[in-house]
């Protein structure tokens, strides 16, 4: 499976990763090699095999809808890059 430059640019955009121009050939090469490795999966016929979702066939545990955690806004916002009036600041998104 060989990727080209535009594939890598598209994937980097999907993953919201800024990749510098000069690094793109390296990623193109390495990601293509990894997909070649992954392509070995195609050699096996898996029709009729149930996909495995959990090693122990467990199902999602549910709990009662009760408040169990206390508000820790201050502690959590102390580590944020930018906050104001208890809100997280990001560049303007609505004109």
């Amino acid at each position: 499976m060989s990727l080209d430059r535009s594939d890598v640019e598209k994937i980097a955009h999907l993953a919201r990763l800024a990749i510098s121009e000069e690094d793109i050939p390296g990623y193109t090469h390495n990601l293509s090699n990894i997909l070649d490795l992954v392509a070995q999966m195609d050699a096996v016929d898996t029709s009729g095999v149930e996909p495995m979702a959990h090693p122990l066939d467990a199902t999602q545990r549910l709990r009662a809808d009760e408040v169990s955690e206390t508000n820790q806004r201050e502690a959590f916002q102390k580590i944020a890059p930018a906050t104001e009036a208890s809100l997280y600041l990001v560049p303007q998104v609505i004109e």
Binding site: V8, I11, A12, H13, L14, A15, R16, L17, A18, I19, S20, D23, G26, Y27, N30, L31, I34, L35, V38, V90, P91
Partner: peptide
């Protein structure tokens, strides 16, 4: 730009490779 550059600067090459394989 905030997402892309923060992630582009914050992650190393191997993590970026795996994120991209996963996203693909």
């Amino acid at each position: 730009d905030l997402y892309k550059r923060s992630r582009g600067e914050g992650f190393g090459a191997e993590v970026k490779r795996r994120i991209m394989i996963g996203a693909y």
